[in-house]
């Protein structure tokens, strides 16, 4: 399976030290980032979700109109919308973008987002509900049969005679993000790709083995991916200087640091180092079974271009080949 490299669109804007006036929170800037990511050779753009961010579905729909090959990984949390509605939304976006939609389901964690929107379910039930949500979505995509639609009576959702009138022929690949055992179970049942923040090599290897085995137990296979922030420059010293105050605590593994991400409010993990060293660490992760890298950096636009030129050629990235633009995308 080919490796894939994706870029994260910081819809909440670049950090204030880079963008004191908030220009990077504007749609015109998101378009520039999407076009830069496509030009730089990334396979897809992850459009994140979060209380401080705009709606990822709508942003992706707009950006699809300004790009040709780039995929869009739309991140969402089940529970804020009914699954049949999400399924229809996905169909329209998938077809409108020329089959470029990928979905990333966030199953756990962000109580602030769930509670902020009035979804008061507790952490463990969330996984059960997420799994049911995804089962319903897949059913709805299959469409209404010749005589009747689908009936579903579950713990969290109920449908009567549901289903799209026109089935979705090539459903989008499903990414499941998370870190807990519960999220791994959801992924094993549903996902094409399971991903979480990078960890020390031993932990990463254990994760790959665990999730692969869980999926095999269901007669499935999936790929494992890694979410990474990257601070890469020509030399180690420059990269360290650039990372500056972002680093928190001690180095987890060579070149791998915990970081604070003020905008998203969550902590992450960054590879900090020279292009060559960062490429070497990523190759190490590949050897542990990581096949999908979801990368971000502080400057959504400049760093997409920088890493596209300096890093992607070192790690064996293959840009999505240009395919003939479907009729509906020709403006």
């Amino acid at each position: 399976m080919a490796l894939e490299f994706h870029w994260v669109l910081p819809t909440e804007g670049d950090p204030p030290r880079l963008d004191p006036q908030g220009r990077t929170r504007q749609p015109a800037h998101w378009i520039a980032v999407a076009q830069a990511a496509e030009y730089a050779g990334f396979n897809a753009l992850l459009v994140p979700t979060g209380v401080q961010r705009p709606d990822a579905w709508l942003v992706a729909a707009a950006l699809a109109r300004h790009t040709q090959r780039l995929g869009f990984i739309v991140a969402f949390r089940p529970g804020l919308v009914l699954p049949a509605v999400a399924a229809q939304r996905a169909q329209t976006l998938h077809e409108l973008s020329g089959q470029r939609l990928l979905l990333s389901v966030l199953t756990g964690g962000d109580a602030a987002e769930h509670h902020g929107y009035g979804d008061l379910i507790n952490h463990d039930d969330r996984f059960v509900r997420a799994a049911e949500f995804l089962r319903v979505v897949r059913q709805v995509w299959k469409g209404r049969g010749a005589c009747s639609g689908i009936d579903h009576h579950g713990a969290h959702y109920r449908l009567q005679n549901g289903g799209l009138s026109r089935p979705l022929r090539q459903p989008p690949a499903l990414y499941v993000g998370g870190a807990s055992p519960a999220s791994e179970r959801v992924a094993a049942e549903q996902a094409q790709v399971y991903y979480g923040w990078a960890e020390a090599p031993a932990l990463l290897q254990a994760r790959v083995q665990r999730v692969t085995a869980l999926a095999a137990g269901q007669g499935r296979s999936l790929r494992v991916g890694c979410r990474l922030h990257v601070v890469a420059r020509t030399t180690e010293a420059e990269a360290q200087r650039e990372a500056g105050t972002m680093l928190r605590g001690a180095e987890i593994a060579p070149n791998l640091w915990p970081i604070a991400r003020p905008a998203g409010g969550r902590n992450g993990v960054a590879l900090v180092g020279s292009y060559a060293r960062v490429a070497q660490r990523m190759a190490g992760m590949q050897s542990l079974g990581i096949e999908s890298f979801i990368l971000s950096a502080d400057a959504g636009l400049d760093d997409a271009l920088r890493l596209g030129e300096e890093l992607l050629p070192l790690v064996g990235a293959r840009p999505t080949s240009a395919k003939p633009v479907p009729a509906e995308l020709r403006g």
Partner: peptide, 19 residues
């Protein structure tokens, strides 16, 4: 309104806004 046989209006509107 969006239904089983109509495309999602929100997604369409986001794209049409660009065009």
């Amino acid at each position: 309104t969006t239904g089983a046989s109509t495309e999602d209006s929100w997604t369409l509107a986001a794209a049409l806004a660009s065009d």
